[in-house]
């Protein structure tokens, strides 16, 4: 994923807190994935307006971690979601 690209959750895909399992899940029609704390933190920044570069910069400040590491891990994470149609990207 390039820094200028804008990740966005497609219609019908949303974050949901599962009170039974006490975990965050990403729900899509008839499908779901579970998220860990970092995955939830990444998706919480996805608003369909800010670019991948802006999001990873914010996460680097929030986690006090190198932005290069954040970009690498986030790109893999969001790429995996995109491949399974849990995420769209606009540019």
């Amino acid at each position: 994923m390039e820094a200028e690209e804008i990740p966005v959750l497609p219609r019908g895909v949303r974050l949901h807190y599962d009170h039974i399992r006490e975990i965050w899940v990403l729900l899509a029609p008839e499908r779901a994935v579970t998220l860990d704390a970092v995955g939830h933190a990444i998706l919480s920044e996805v608003d369909g307006e800010r670019s991948f570069g802006e999001i990873t910069q914010k996460l680097a400040e929030k986690f006090n971690a190198p932005v290069d590491l954040i970009m690498q891990d986030s790109a893999g994470f969001l790429g995996a979601l995109r491949a399974r149609r849990f995420l769209d990207v606009s540019s």
Binding site: A32, T34, L35, V38, G39, I70, D73, G76, A80
Partner: peptide, 21 residues
């Protein structure tokens, strides 16, 4: 709030690891 490589598990019928360390 420590950064770790994020993990995704897809729920099918069971949790199946989809991405992560």
């Amino acid at each position: 709030m420590a950064w770790n490589k994020p993990v995704i598990r897809e729920i099918e019928c069971m949790e199946i690891n989809m991405y992560g360390p």
